[in-house]
Each structure stands twice: as C-alpha cells, then as structure tokens.
Write a protein that binds this DNA or RNA. Structure first.
Lengths: 232, 232
DNA sequence: GAGTGGTCTAGACCACGTG
DNA sequence: ACGTGGTCTAGACCACTCC
C-alpha cells in the first residue's frame, strides 16, 4: 500500500464530482458512513474531505453534512509585478523624480487621506533593450523618519518599496487594468511615434486593516506588454 | 474558551512571522515541542500547522521540520468573464455568425491541431445600454454529434459554451491581456469615432490533460472596461 | 539511534440542525 | 433524540534526515 487511504478517498469523490455523478448542491455520504465504506477511522476520512474542501470541490455545514460546490470557472491567478511580463522584462530603470507633494482631491480620496497630508511621489521610466517601455508613478503616504533611499527605490517593485514599513505578509493589494490612448506627454516619454495604445495598470496597496498605503500607476507601451494569468 | 487551540497556534505563529520574529527560511519548533508548549496533542498542533501551510506561511520537509516561506507578494486573483467588469456589464448580445471553418496556420498552432481539422467560429457583439462595447470571437474544436444551439451560445461565457463536453471542474484556463489600437473594421463594429484604445483579452481553454479545447478573443472598447484583481 | 514529519486508530465530548 | 460535523486525546508505526 503506497498511497494513503485519504488520497484514495479524495480521488474517488473528486472523480464522482467531475464526472457528474455528484452534482453541485448534492450531499456527500456522512463521515461515519465513509468510515465504514473505506474501513478507516474518522480522522482519516476528515483528512480527505478537508483536502477536497481546500481544493474547492466541497464545503461542509455543521450539523448537516458535506455538499458539492459549484466550480469557480472564472478565477484566474496573475503573477504581476511592474518589472516583468510575457513579452519583455525591464532591464534598466531611470528614476525621473522623487518629490514630496500635497495630493489633489482625487489622489487624497484614493488614498483616503486629507489634502493636507504629504505624499511621496516617485516617477520612473522602465527600459527594455534600450527602449523605454513604461512610465511608472507611485504615490506613497509620507512618513517622518522613514528615509527614501534612491538606490533602494530605483529597481524595486511596489511591494518591495514599502516592505520596511509593512510586512509583506500583511499586505493587501488591488490591481486595475485598462487600455488608453497615450497623450502627447506620454508619447514623448515613451518614444511613441506610430499609433500605439497604452496598457495602464493601477496598483493599490493596503495594510492589514485595509487602509491605503500607496497607489501606483504604470503606463506600458501596448506593444511591449502582455499580461498572463492561469486558473488553478 | 470559545476559540479552539489550533486557532491560537495559527495566530501566534502567523504574528511571529509577519512581525519578523520568524524570518523566511527559519525553522519552526517541532510538532512535539509545540505539543508541550500548548499542552495539547499532536493532531491539534498538526491541524494548526496545516492551516498555516495552506495559507502559504510555512512548508514542511519530512524528517527535517517546518520552515517559514517567503511571501508571494505578486499574486492577484481575477474573477474574469467576458460579460462583466468594473465599469459595465453586458446587458445584450448579438450573435453575428456561427461558422465551421478550417483554421489558418496560426489558429491551428494555437489549438494544437492540423489545418485540416474543422473549427467552430462564433462571432458576437456585446452591448451595454444600447452601445456596442466589445467584439467577441471564439474558436472551438468541432465535434460531430455535439449540436450548436444558437440560443445556448448567445449569452454564454466561454466555459459555459463547452460545459457539455468537458466538466467545468476539469477545465484549465489561460488569460492573456494586452492593449491595441483598433483597426478600421473594428472601429466600425464598435462605433468608435474618437481615439479609443482596445483592451484585448485572449482566453484559452484546456482539458484536464492540457490539450486545447478552444480559443476566445474579446476586443473591449477601452472606455468601457476595467479589469479588477485582488491579492489574498 | 535520535529526532523529525506523515499516516492512522479508537475512542471522547461538543454544538448544531432536523424531526 | 438522533445524526451531523468540529474539536481533541493518547497512543501507534513508518520513512526520512542527520549525526
């Protein structure tokens, strides 16, 4: 017997679900009846069921039983950072400016602060093989006593920039992606002559209480970026 | 005592990790030493550790111990389907055509079939509040005996279209996102007069053995779509 | 050989949902 | 009252790693 019993239980039930023998909403046999079916103890049965539950196949309702869950057929996982994507990776960056500013109404609203609170603005250009491929701007809540070291920011992704004030384990993040026609200013910055669209990625960082820490906007040349996500 | 012991263990270790007391690569106390620390049995300790492992905080190496994992600070989850997004939802669709075609070289390569294999091509327009917001095209492997019911595909998302041949539980999916300037044909279809970019989403469906089932490309008007993802 | 995690047992008590 | 899942115990044997 090389395979543990609970794996057998997982495989059996999983295949009954994906074959359609068990449909969403159906109730599974109870733990005790699976115990006798597989001639094993309750903890072993529970181990198998907890795996199926983690995999999203089933859920349990105390006092009632285990039920088949509807599949999530619209979930995708993206591994995004502003420095790498399907087509090109950023091989050089240029720090355009680091300023301490007062936010306008929109930015203050986005960061959930008053317009009198200072904000650090960091502007960068990303290059690949000598060509500018993205313009990147970050807004960070200004904190006294946290020095801004240019060499640390220069090549850092957004989460890395704030890793000295918030644990990366506690960071909540949000991404908004859209397409846009570049304005003249942006065309100059990114050396765009022909008709090229921008892929804009807005990245918002929150602390563990979901209070905003920073907002980042990256304007990618449309011909230099493809984002990639997968299910599972 | 309302909270179970294993929750206490999870919270203690999790906070030691996010506070930095335990750093990535560090080894955790062994199961038996946690047993005596919390005056509980091994199964209870293991329950807590398995939760931390599922949450991505730690991993175990048989014979050695549990170790702190580096955080994944670039993972985002997107709930994508072509009918709904942050700005607008599709409230009406128009089926432009359903054809059985022979794939060109590029399509055949993408679907990993020979150019003599038939493919179903479905073209749709998506509307919101009377305005066309996206042009959608799907390529599906042609299967004899699986009828194409126009009313079923008209308002279906891509996974729903193939749910009669592949279990939605077994479906693997891939998304590629990029920005593009619309060509004349597309501008007419989407009633684009001014300068508006397209957000293009390519969706590829695979069966459980990762053989391609279909390719979908949706061209969204840039002013009608924002995609949204979150960490966690 | 001593220590580690992985699997498993045969019980126990509890809270919850349904009749 | 009974069946369900949720928590927990005090053991056991195994495979693996390190010395």
């Amino acid at each position: 017997m090389k395979n543990p019993i609970y794996i057998k239980i997982v495989e059996d039930i999983r295949s009954e679900i994906s074959s359609g023998k068990l449909k969403p909403g159906d109730v599974l046999p109870s733990e005790t009846s699976l115990c006798s079916e597989y001639d094993t103890s309750r903890m072993t049965v529970r181990k198998g069921l907890s795996i199926l539950s983690n995999e999203g196949y089933i859920y349990s309702v105390p006092g009632k039983g285990y039920f088949v869950k509807k599949p999530d057929y619209n979930k995708y996982i993206f591994a995004y950072d502003e420095m790498s994507n399907l087509i090109n990776n950023v091989d050089r960056t240029k720090l355009l400016s680091v300023d301490i500013i007062l936010p306008d109404e929109k930015l203050a609203g986005s960061l959930q602060i008053s317009e009198s609170k200072k904000v650090v603005m960091i502007r960068r250009l990303f290059y690949t093989e000598g060509e500018p491929m993205a313009y990147d701007i970050k807004y960070l809540l200004y904190k006294r006593g946290v020095p801004i070291v240019e060499n640390e920011i220069k090549n850092a992704t957004f989460p890395e920039m704030i890793s000295d004030r918030t644990s990366l384990y506690d960071l909540n993040k949000e991404l908004i992606i859209y397409a846009k026609i570049p304005e003249e200013k942006m065309k100059k910055l990114l050396h765009i002559q022909n008709k090229i669209a921008l892929l804009v990625v807005e990245q918002k960082l929150y602390d563990i209480e979901d209070k905003p820490i920073g907002l980042g906007i990256t304007y990618f040349r449309g011909d230099y970026i493809k984002l990639h996500g997968v299910s599972k």
